[in-house]
Design a protein around this nucleic acid. Structure first.
Lengths: 181, 181
DNA sequence: CACTTTTTTCAGAGCTTATTGAAACATATG
DNA sequence: CATATGTTTCAATAAGCTCTGAAAAAAGTG
């Protein structure tokens, strides 16, 4: 196949999206598959993905599953054959909502729980500590409390955004831009 | 040293913060050093960091420098000796501002540039494309445009927040929570 | 239910990234 | 400016993460 500007552009996008994913803690291949499906005009099957990205069946399967788990892509069944096809969420706002909700659930909420536990461990003044150490413990406890406060607020904000949907997010950003300057 | 609840709690926090960093594309050690300094009640020197985290001098030096580059920690000079001490930004809101600004600058802005380039490559209808492919290219171009629109808006929002500072962020979140429900 | 097609799993290979430790480089001191 | 103290660099190594490929499992078909 001759490389048209279209194909060339798409390849560039897929590669670059993969690199970005990598710096955000998403495996390069998973991000590439996502980019491939996001820029596809029809659902692709596992073999399509394998061929376009030059990856093994196992790798494709694993990463497709992860993308399904994230809710970033969906299964589509064809009438013609018995393969499973995949399709990405194409609305970028919805995509953002899904990602931020999932990261919140998987990574932020667990760290909040940990910090709560850490805070509980130093909450009541201990008799086993010297005066100096007790003072340090209080400073430490206050910082944890501030971090908790912050993370909980982010959690709330994220939930609100998730509820708000596309229109809501746009509205918020517009309010935001006026409210600040 | 007997492990007080304080020390135990702090170790847990440092470990957990490191793990979280890792899932967000920040090296475990860098995040651990950051947590250690964030929870410290006095500035620490390289040897303190090495000892507390059981890491080599080179590793400590490299990661401390990276944290300095991010603007998450600062050098402090002691009168007593000629060592350099390090201190973390202790205001979580400021910390968040720094991180989001840096990620924007390092990772989001470059991907915006790439997508602009990708979009330019398929902007004008090509004569080398068949009718079917031209149609696909148009769908693709539209998706890129939507993505660009979204990322630019995020960029704007992030810049606004950066300008707004702590008070501003709080205010925005409060507006946000009212504006949505 | 026997057979075909498609998908998933996972142990080992391969690759990327992080870490060490020692040498080179800075900087302060008398 | 010689020496001591502290910091950075970087090649070699280690650790961790990703990918492959083939075998097992699952799903579809007549």
């Amino acid at each position: 196949m001759a490389t048209s500007g279209y194909q060339e552009s798409r390849e560039l996008f897929v590669r670059r999206w993969g690199e970005m994913g990598a710096t955000w803690g998403i495996s390069r291949t998973m991000a590439e598959i996502h980019a491939l499906l996001f820029t596809a005009t029809r659902p692709l099957c596992t073999d399509d993905v394998m061929e376009r990205l030059n990856i093994s069946r196992g790798n494709a399967s694993m990463n497709l599953r992860q993308l399904l788990n994230w809710g970033l892509i969906h299964r589509v069944h064809s009438r013609d054959d018995r393969k499973v096809y995949f399709e990405a969420e194409s609305d970028v706002w919805e995509m953002f909502r899904v990602i931020s909700r999932e990261r919140q659930r998987r990574e932020v909420e667990p760290i909040i729980e940990t910090i709560e536990r850490c805070h509980a461990m130093v909450d009541k003044p201990s008799k086993t500590l010297g005066a100096e150490e007790a003072k340090q413990a209080r400073v430490y406890a206050r910082r944890l409390a501030e971090m908790l406060d912050f993370l909980r607020m982010m959690n709330t904000a994220s939930n609100l955004l998730a509820k708000a949907g596309k229109g809501g997010i746009r509205r918020v950003l517009s309010i935001l831009s006026k409210a600040i300057r």
